[in-house]
Design a protein around this nucleic acid. Structure first.
Lengths: 218, 218
DNA sequence: CCGCCGGTCAACCAAACGGTTGATCGTGGC
DNA sequence: GCCACGATCAACCGTTTGGTTGACCGGCGG
């Protein structure tokens, strides 16, 4: 049985070296190539594809210092830009905010792991992804479960997107422009968000959303 | 000549593996031990010290998921808690906010590197630190220079106090009540804050203040 | 001693925000 | 097919915030 061929995508050389060292210790897993951002990842995938040695799994970070970010890259890989069939993309990142998780899943990621996960968990996730299954870190899975059991505060993806712009300090008009919708729609969304979060103004919404880790802050 | 003995401190197994792999490729550098947080780092340093094989350099991350953070750990190492003489501490982290850099330097760090630095830069930094010299990443050095030339306006204690209430989502009236001042005064303070932070509304002020770590959020 | 700065307050006006009602459209479930 | 729900937009209105101007006081440093 052939090894699972992995493409590493992370902007930190240190992390790539760590993953390479870690994965090469495991039976049945080989690091086929590395990329420092989403654009390079697409290029590498195409290259491997034309070589007749396509990657079986992409291990992708979400935050890239410069260049194409992980969510965008995942979407374009899944769109077939780097060859068909598109390989499963396993997200391996530092943060576990709802916003990140949802964006990744919507882009077509087949797993979401955290960088502080123990090595064996990462190994299992790579194997699962290669087998076409979904692999979620326990923390991430728990958060999703909580969301399902608790129908109280379920913000839609659009609302979370709005919340993120809100947190950057943009006014309603600016948010409307960013999202290509009218100011009226922004206000409607805000009212819904306030209701769901149990607050009555934008700063309080940001405060609550941050504490519930619905959105992330640095 | 003996190898430089390094203690790795990082909460991510992946990163520790990467640093270990990377450093062991270099001549003259040995990884003596690893720790997952500040507390473990102090314990490891003490252990190495009593073994008669003290670490020559500590490579320390700032953000630890749980346990003692890197700044605190650095301060306690420098205070001699893990044996005298205290080894140089080289910060190796992801973010380069002014507040982080200043806090690290104040705690006694002898260098500040970023995780996306090329391997050779990290190697040089370890060698410099071991030799008792200071090692700053070019980006970090540039930022410090910029600060000196262009000092940021300093927020008064009162203004920071206001910012903290602001960030909890309180309106001007509520803030006024909390601080036993009039609403008019709150507005005056806000205008000053906006000016100093270079913004023009409250949410943006919170955003900027958070990013500059003028105020804390979890 | 005098000026500067931080903190306090007031009055005023324009702009942004908050809240409501009501409406259309498309998707997905029953 | 119908209903629920999310997303979109409009018009309206009251409240809050933003921005300005001007003023007073107390401490600190030249």
């Amino acid at each position: 049985m052939n090894d699972i061929r992995v493409l590493l995508v992370d902007d930190h050389p240190v992390v790539r070296a760590g993953l390479r060292a870690m994965l090469s210790d495991f039976e049945g897993i080989t690091v086929a190539a590395e990329a420092a951002d989403g654009g390079a990842a697409l290029a590498e995938l195409s290259r491997l594809h034309t070589l007749g040695e396509p990657a079986d799994v992409v291990l992708m970070d979400l935050q890239m210092g410069a260049g194409m970010d992980g969510v965008t890259a995942t979407g374009r890989i899944k769109a077939g830009e780097a060859g068909q069939p598109a390989p499963p993309v396993l997200i391996l990142t530092t943060f576990d905010s709802d916003a990140d998780i949802l964006a990744a899943v919507e882009a077509g990621a087949s797993g979401y792991m955290l960088k502080d996960a123990p090595p064996d968990q990462i190994r299992q996730a790579v194997l699962s992804a290669a087998a076409g299954q979904t692999a979620l870190a326990p923390e991430v899975a728990a958060r999703l479960m909580g969301r399902i059991r608790n129908p109280e505060p379920v913000l839609s993806a659009r609302e979370i997107q709005l919340l993120e712009l809100l947190a950057t300090g943009l006014g309603n008009r600016a948010i409307a422009k960013q999202l290509f919708i009218s100011e009226a729609t922004v206000k409607t969304h805000l009212v819904h968000i306030y209701g769901k979060l149990g607050v009555d103004n934008r700063t309080a919404a940001i405060s609550v959303a941050t504490q519930r880790r619905i959105i992330r802050r640095f």
